[in-house]
Amino acid sequence: MRQTPAAYPLTWRIMDGLEAFVAFAWPARLGAAIPWLMLAPALLLVGLLVIGLVQIGDVSFRTLDPSTYRMSENYTIANYQRAFTESLFATVATRSLLGALIVTVVTLVLAFPYTYLMVRTPNAMLRKLLLTALFLPFFIGQVVRAYGWLIILGNQGMVNEALGLVGVEPLRLLYNYPAVLFGLVQYMLPFAVLMLAPALSAIPEELEAAAESLGANWVRTFTHVVLPLARPGLVGAGLVVLTLSLTDFAMPAILGGGSQDFIANAIYDQFFRTSDQGLGSTLALLLVAAGSLLVGLVIALFGAGTLALSRVRR
């Protein structure tokens, strides 16, 4: 039966028009290109990063002429030789890598029970409280948080004042390696909890109940059920914390008292203090390489965790 105009609403007609336009502008034979079209913004961004890296790579093979403060025209590997032979850079690199590993382990250990409690507690008020405590630090920048620790841990800070009440002389709690690691752990904790929460939420509570009903105590349930199933979250959180810690600038600069530099601080020094963009670029590229190798190693050993690009399970 032929439809009357009233039976074919205006909105349908508009949709028909739009479909016709799309069919004209983007014919069906181009359908295979749609995924690439969706990828285009990401490819553009990555492309820009690659261009930047190529330029940094170019500068890394040039040396600074201190009589003109310009980079040399010719290429040389002198900056790489300096980076690998000068004790300063070995010290700073070792400190950064070791620090990143310690911070990652400590952060995961602290984040796990926090996250577990947050996703498992039946008390809605407690869950809200934990969520609020998790998100609050995101509203405060890293630098402000570091300065907060200066106030709390300083010679005349709250902790030393409290110690003074029980007759303890002021302790040097700041401007050392543990202070930097402490600041980093505090900064990284919310990131780790955020990465762990989806993984722990995905573990059915029934599995834990089943293990307990089969006679497993909470330790065995934890080690044989929860921990293996939480591995993707732990790996994902570990990768994020590891890379962020390895490349951090502010905590070593503020809480380190100038003598606990990480690689990022050394790069800053070369770019902005000695104006040696060549050596700064070299260190930056080596940092990218070290970080990539470390991440690659973790992925090779443990998989990519929640960062994995696998298809949805069917």
Binding site: S87, L88, T91
Partner: peptide
Amino acid sequence: WFSKFKAIMQG
């Protein structure tokens, strides 16, 4: 000079 000072102080 910067490198030498830093090498001493960061060591």
